[in-house]
């Protein structure tokens, strides 16, 4: 359905925006390395089914590969900045202070409690859903402390938020047309959307109302 495709495309757009900008400008200002690392973990644990070769469609398989590849590439590019611009890299690391063990640990426990089947694949899948729902927190934490957001960060988080928002009408659509209600995805998806709403709140309060920021 249209919501799902648009959702996937804005998800893809968010990663492309990030990738292209970092590649072109060699700037990582305002980007949380921890959030990016969490996304690599999210994609790798969610798309483990690629290894079973029970592929659903060309679209599904290609997108999964692109998401894993692009998220790894983002990390590579950030690491390259380390040698190119050590000062900027150090500055980013100094501000990227969120303790991710407080996210990974609880998500692992939640995956053990809430899953469809007690198999490695299903547990990893559930873990990835929980982790995705909170993976943006180090980024939001960084943003809320600095009160400044670069154009890159703003566009990136906006596209990500749009992807999450579009998945909600997709679930409603699928409920009515297919009778499908996948509770785990819906719950973690709503949780994630709530966190993004918080971003837009911070964005409004600190960035738009704050000084020293030019709207893109």
């Amino acid at each position: 359905n249209i919501f799902r495709i648009l959702g996937d495309l804005s998800h893809l757009a968010s990663i492309v925006i990030l990738l292209r900008t970092v590649q072109k400008t060699r700037q990582v200002d305002g980007i949380s390395l921890k959030t990016q690392l969490l996304y690599v973990l999210v994609f790798c644990t969610r798309y483990l089914d690629l290894l079973t070769f029970r592929w659903k469609s060309v679209y599904n398989t290609l997108m999964k590969m692109v998401f894993i590849g692009a998220s790894v590439r983002v990390i590579q590019l950030i690491q390259e900045c380390k040698t190119r611009n050590a000062v900027a890299y150090k500055d980013m690391m100094a501000r990227d202070t969120f303790q991710i063990k407080y996210l990974v640990g609880p998500c692992a426990i939640l995956a053990l409690v809430f899953n469809y089947k007690f198999t490695v694949l299903e547990l990893c899948w559930s873990f990835s859903l929980w982790l995705e729902s909170v993976a943006i927190l180090p980024q939001l934490f960084m943003l809320s402390r600095s009160g400044k957001a670069g154009t890159l960060t703003t566009h990136y988080i906006f596209a990500l938020g749009l992807y999450r928002a579009l998945y909600i009408p997709n679930w409603i659509w699928r409920y009515y047309t297919e009778g499908r209600l996948e509770k785990l995805s819906v719950f973690t998806g709503l949780l994630q959307t709530a966190l993004y709403s918080d971003f837009f709140y911070i964005y409004y309060k600190k960035v738009i109302k704050g000084a020293g920021f030019e709207l893109p």
Binding site: R4, D8, K64, F67, Y116, K117, Y167, N170, R180, S185
Partner: peptide, 10 residues
Amino acid sequence: TSTQLEHDEL
């Protein structure tokens, strides 16, 4: 009990 659904979303 919840029946297992195919994970066909990204």
